[in-house]
Design a protein around this nucleic acid. Sequence first.
DNA 1: ATTAATTTTTAGACAAAACTAAAAATTTGT
DNA 2: ACAAATTTTTAGTTTTGTCTAAAAATTAAT
Lengths: 218, 218
Amino acid sequence: MTRSEENYIKTIFHLGGNTSTPISTNAIAEQMETKPSSVTDMSKKLAEKGLVYHKKYQGVSLTDLGVKMALSIIRKHRLWEVFLVEKLDFTWDEVHEVAEQLEHIKSEKLIDQIDALLGYPKYDPHGDPIPSKDGEFMERDKQLLSDMPMLSKGVCVGVKDTSPTFLKFLDKNQIALGNTIQVLDIEDFDQSLSILVNDKKLNISHQIAANLYVKKQN
Amino acid sequence: MTRSEENYIKTIFHLGGNTSTPISTNAIAEQMETKPSSVTDMSKKLAEKGLVYHKKYQGVSLTDLGVKMALSIIRKHRLWEVFLVEKLDFTWDEVHEVAEQLEHIKSEKLIDQIDALLGYPKYDPHGDPIPSKDGEFMERDKQLLSDMPMLSKGVCVGVKDTSPTFLKFLDKNQIALGNTIQVLDIEDFDQSLSILVNDKKLNISHQIAANLYVKKQN
DNA sequence: ATTAATTTTTAGACAAAACTAAAAATTTGT
DNA sequence: ACAAATTTTTAGTTTTGTCTAAAAATTAAT
C-alpha cells in the first residue's frame, strides 16, 4: 500500500466505514482536505485492490481486508504516539503530526518491538484504544462529560477533539487523563458547566465538555 | 526536500561529492539503481535549489548547503540505527533497511530526543561516525585489516561493506566491533589471512579483510 | 412529478519522478 | 587529429496522485 492509499483507508475507517453504512465521497474529501474527484479516483483504485466496496454514487465502505489494514495503521499511529510521550517527552498536542509520518514506516519487527518496549499499552495519550496485532481492541466504557448529570463524578479517560488547540487548553487548566471530575452545576442558559478538578472549581463551556470523555463512577 | 531529493543528496555525499571533485552522472545512477537520464533531471532540480553545482557533462558536487543537508540526513540515519540496535534489539544487519525509511521523518524534536535517549552516541552500529547537529563529526583513526602488517594487533572499529551478507558472516564467525584482532599470517598466494579473534584462530579471505576496519594498537 | 440543487463521476491536464530512445558532448584510441 | 566508444543530455512517455471543469446521477423542493 502506498502512503496515500493508507491515508484514505484510515480516513474511511475514522468516518465509520467499517460498518455497513457507506461513507460519502464528499465526507472523505472534506476530511482529507482534497477534492471529491480525487476521492473517486482513489476509491476505484482501492476497490480494485479489494480494500473497499464502491458502488457508483453510493459512497464507499471498507471490506474485511480494508478494516484489517485500517486497524494496522491505527495501531502503528497510536503506538508511536505512546512512544513519543513516554520515551521522548513529547506533549500530547505534539504527537499527532509526527505519528502521521511514523505510521507509514514498513517494518513488522519495528512496531512489534516498539509495542514491547512500551509494555504493550492498551490506550494512546488521548485515551483511544490501541488495536492488538490481530486487530482486536477494547473501546472503553466512557461517556461525554456533557452527558453527565448534575453532581455526578467521573474519571477523565479520553478526548474527542485531539487538536493542539483543545489539548493545550486542557493543559492550561490542568485537566489530564486520570483526573477525577465532578459536575457541580449545569447552567440552564448555555449548558456551560461548573466542575471540580484537582480540588479546584472551574467553569467550562458546553463545547469543552462535549469533547471530554469520562468514565462514570457508580 | 522530497524523499527522492534527499536520497540523491545522500548518495552524492557518499560518493565523495562533498569535495571539489564532481561525481559523474553514471556513478550516481549506478549507485541508486536508476538511469543516467533520471540523474540528469534530478541534478538540474537540485542545482536550481542551490544544493549542487552542475555543469553540463561535468557531473555534480554538493554546495555547502548540500553538504549540510547530506550530513543532516546521515545523522538521522545513523541515530536511528543506534536506536534500533540499542532499544529494539535489532541486529546490525537488519537496521539499514528500516533506517532508510526513518531518516526521512520530518521533526527536529524527534531526532534530538532520540539523540538524547541514546546518550548522544558518536558512532553507529557499523562504526560510522554520527554527525552532530551542526554537522561536525569525527572520522575515527582506522585502517583496513588488509593493510595491517603481519603480527600487528588492532581493535575492530568498523565495517566498510554493510550488506547483511557480510555482517551475517561476521556474526557467524563471532567477529564484532570492539574485538581485538591479531594478524598471525598473510598468505602470499591469495593474500588470505590467518587471524586471532577471541582467542580463536580463523582464516579469512583478502576480501573479508578489505572490508574490516581496525584501530592499530601501538 | 418535474424542476432545482446537490453530489458524484468523467474527461482532460498537470507535477513529480521515473523510463526509453535518440542526439549531443566528451573522452579514448590509434 | 580524427574516428570510435563512452558518457551525458534532451525529448517524449509513463505512473501516481492530484486538480478543474463539465457531465451525469441522485436528492430535495415546490
